[in-house]
Simulated assay, not measured.
Amino acid sequence: MATLVQPAGPFALGTFSAPDGEPFPGLLSDDRVLDLRAALGEPALTTRGIFERWAELLPLLHALATDGTGTWQALDGLRVHAPVEPRQIFQSGANYRQHVIDLEVAHRSPDDPRTVEEARAEIAAIMDRRAAEDLPYVFIGLPSTIAGPYDDVVLPSWAAKPDWELELAAVVAKPAYRVPVEEALEYVAGYTIANDLTDRATVFRRDMPAIGTDWLRCKNAPGFTPLGPWIVPAESIADPGDLRVTLKLNGETMQDESTKDMLFGIARLVSYISRTARLLPGDLVLTGSPAGNGIHWGRLLRDGDVMEGSITGLGVQRTRCVEEKA
């Protein structure tokens, strides 16, 4: 397990297990974990179940974190799993201004008559217009992509250009449908880290270009969304619109950007999604990835690579890439 980076606030929530034990919802405070099934007297409790009763249980979680009683376990003796099992994953694409500009330039046709500077200026104007017209770009991911924050990432044999996309993820606190922007943050329980892996070779349908993007193929392999290590309550994050998102590949910094570069913040994304879909407790809203992906650097993921992702106040996840065995 990676070295503990203390999350913001008095506590965080996660899913843990002792050696040979079953996963349990845990309260992390300092470097200790409290099994919330025993502490709350609910043997069947899950982390998602906590979010289904978020308003009721949040004061109790505060009390447990400051009380100090109960049977606490050392974190370094536990396995850390993905902190929650969502029913739905909503993913925001093209949400970081510089990231989109870099991607568009990287995917330019060799026959494009524009200079790089002209292309960048044109794409920047499009981004500014999208922001002004309030048009986020959101698609849906599969819960089966979720993996733990320290699990190995298996690179499928068919994925010719696997890439990283570290991003801030918001966790939904209560059902949200047709929520105004002004109230949207009231529906967010907390925040965590997601690495939304993408196979760049299969993003676009080459057989039928008119169909456009193929999100099933390029993003939904098992384990393609390492999540966590834990969820920090929203009240402990002063401004989710001003957090540092950093990804290191084999120790070298590849992504290092503030969430200030997002075109659409958390409230606008939650509100926009809720115009169409009903968000449920424990669901994830991934907010997009900043500049610095592998396609930009001309260096995609391969067997043995180690990714270390961090976001201000949310801890660090560390995953190793493993080539799929035939």
Results as ranks from 00 to 15, higher is better:
Ala291Thr: 14
Met254Phe: 13
Leu279Met: 11
Leu284Ile: 03
Leu247Ile: 02
Ala291Cys: 10
Glu252Lys: 14
Leu301Ala: 07
Ala238Ile: 15
Tyr272Lys: 02
Gln255Glu: 09
Asp242Val: 09
Gly292Thr: 08
Ala267Leu: 15
Ser258Trp: 11
Pro233Ser: 15
Ala234Pro: 00
Lys260Gly: 06
Ser271Ala: 01
Asp214Gln: 06
Pro226Cys: 13
Gly294His: 06
Val306Lys: 08
Leu280Met: 15
Gly282Val: 01
Leu243Trp: 03
Arg299Trp: 03
Thr213His: 02
Gly282Arg: 06
Ile231Cys: 05
Lys219Phe: 10
Thr319Phe: 07
Gly298Arg: 13
Asp256Leu: 03
Leu279Tyr: 00
Gly313Phe: 05
Leu279Thr: 04
Cys218Trp: 02
Thr276Ala: 10
Gly292Lys: 06
Arg268Tyr: 08
Lys248Glu: 15
Leu216Ile: 14
Gly309Ser: 10
Asp214His: 15
Arg320Pro: 12
Thr225Leu: 13
Leu284Gly: 04
Val316Gln: 02
Leu280Asp: 11
Leu314Ala: 11
Trp230Arg: 05
Asn220Gly: 08
Gly315Thr: 05
Thr319Ser: 13
Arg275Pro: 08
Thr259Ile: 05
Asp305Lys: 05
Cys321Arg: 09
Arg268His: 07
Lys219Asn: 02
Leu227Pro: 02
Leu216Pro: 01
Arg217Gly: 11
Arg302Trp: 12
Val316Ala: 03
Pro226Arg: 09
Glu308His: 03
Asp303Cys: 09
Ser236Val: 11
Pro281Val: 07
Ser271Lys: 01
Cys218Phe: 04
Ile231Gly: 02
Arg275Ser: 07
Glu235Thr: 14
Gly298His: 13
Ala210Phe: 15
Thr246Asp: 04
Thr276Ile: 07
Pro229Arg: 01
Glu257Phe: 05
Pro281Thr: 02
Pro226His: 09
Gly288Pro: 01
Ser236Ile: 13
Val285Glu: 04
Phe264Arg: 06
Leu263Thr: 02
Pro281Asp: 11
Pro290Cys: 12
Trp230Ser: 00
Gly292His: 00
Lys260Leu: 11
Ala221Gly: 02
Pro240Cys: 14
Arg318Pro: 08
Ser258Phe: 06
Leu279Pro: 00
Pro229Gly: 00
Gly298Ala: 12
Pro233Ile: 15
Gly298Leu: 01
Trp215Asn: 05
Pro290Val: 07
